[in-house]
Design a protein around this nucleic acid. Sequence first.
DNA 1: TTCATCATTCGATTATCATCGAACTATGAA
DNA 2: TTCATAGTTCGATGATAATCGAATGATGAA
Lengths: 226, 226
Amino acid sequence: MKEGPDIARVAALLGDPARANMLTALMGGKALTATELAQEAGVTPQTASSHLAKLEAGQIVIPRKQGRHRYFTLSGPDIVEALEVMMGIANRVGHNRVRTGPKDPELRRARVCYDHLAGDMGVALFDGLSKRKLIKTDLNGVALTDAGVDFANGFGIDLAALRQNRRPLCRECLDWSARQSHLAGSFGAALLDRFYDLGWARRMSESRIVRFSAEGEQKFRELVGD
Amino acid sequence: MKEGPDIARVAALLGDPARANMLTALMGGKALTATELAQEAGVTPQTASSHLAKLEAGQIVIPRKQGRHRYFTLSGPDIVEALEVMMGIANRVGHNRVRTGPKDPELRRARVCYDHLAGDMGVALFDGLSKRKLIKTDLNGVALTDAGVDFANGFGIDLAALRQNRRPLCRECLDWSARQSHLAGSFGAALLDRFYDLGWARRMSESRIVRFSAEGEQKFRELVGD
DNA sequence: TTCATCATTCGATTATCATCGAACTATGAA
DNA sequence: TTCATAGTTCGATGATAATCGAATGATGAA
């Protein structure tokens, strides 16, 4: 006992409902102000301020001052990873929130998972790219095929730039709502960016929902080979 | 807000020091009894029982009754993953436990990370296999090379059997003590098993420490090309 | 059966912490 | 300057939950 790093301190910081709501909101990838986070968490600004001070002291979030606002972001990809894993666990053991709001169906359909597409359409994307043999999955994980490289270039994705990053190009990410994998990694993020740029989809404000336009969805269906 | 699975409930279960200590102990891979876990956590049996009831209700651990003992194990690999990620975060932000016991140096040298080798020697293994080009790391992660496959067969590892499993063969796992990657996945686990079988090393009881014999260490050094 | 050990339940205590009202500071706009 | 908004600090309140002593049930050993 008394071995190693202190998990409890980190876990306790994620273990309060108000803080968990804030962090989940920050998984959207956008920096949010203290008041926005207070609303997300459903608490008063005073309470939110106290929570944010704790999260900041624990180096879970990083504040950035701009004018009279303070914008908060998650302190690193490891935080995202931790939240993702815990969502997977919570989903597996059936720890869903008591009230599932009206936004729930849309969320399960298409949402942003920090920077890539998740939900049913995220899973469809993964399956579609696999079926078209643009990505392949083996025991070592997911990888882009030669055909996939050609596709990426044709689709307007600069693979060379992505490779600059230390981050893996392709990564599986367990989708808590669909119980299947969707595509993460820098390639997954780049795909979603292209969907935005092409006008196929856009982020709903104040939410993780990704809404596709009619044409956008049709193009998407063609892409995944439906 | 009010979207998705309830992270907070899971995180709160991991967020108590006593429970975190218990779970860390279970990362050793062995099933432990309630009293053993009470000792690990540094609390009385009554308190431990209360914690274990909570963990069981939250499906974080699974009890198995045997005689008058109750043996507990982690409920799935996702729990291990969550604990690992949180250790990484805790280490990054410097949340180490206040008292670092006398076992600390040995732990940092060689310990079991659920089922594979971690610590300095775990990192040395990863580096050694890379240098000998038995494994390779690219943007898609770690993979066994052709030479690596030959090596595994010669070393007494049944890759065909490992492939039965859905689990990835090779996986990087961030070592919290060395701040570098060591080798996880079913191949990583199989390697450690062989070290045990060959008598190179053995598990210390009541701890995650892996202790190498003198000859064992020498063989290990040859293996990693020192 | 009798005894010892493992584990749980109950009850009481204690400490921690989330919460919010009120007051205060800081920044920007008019 | 004056006003409005963003955010924090302080203090009080209330609820939750961790802890352990004592008692109870359950299993195996003698």
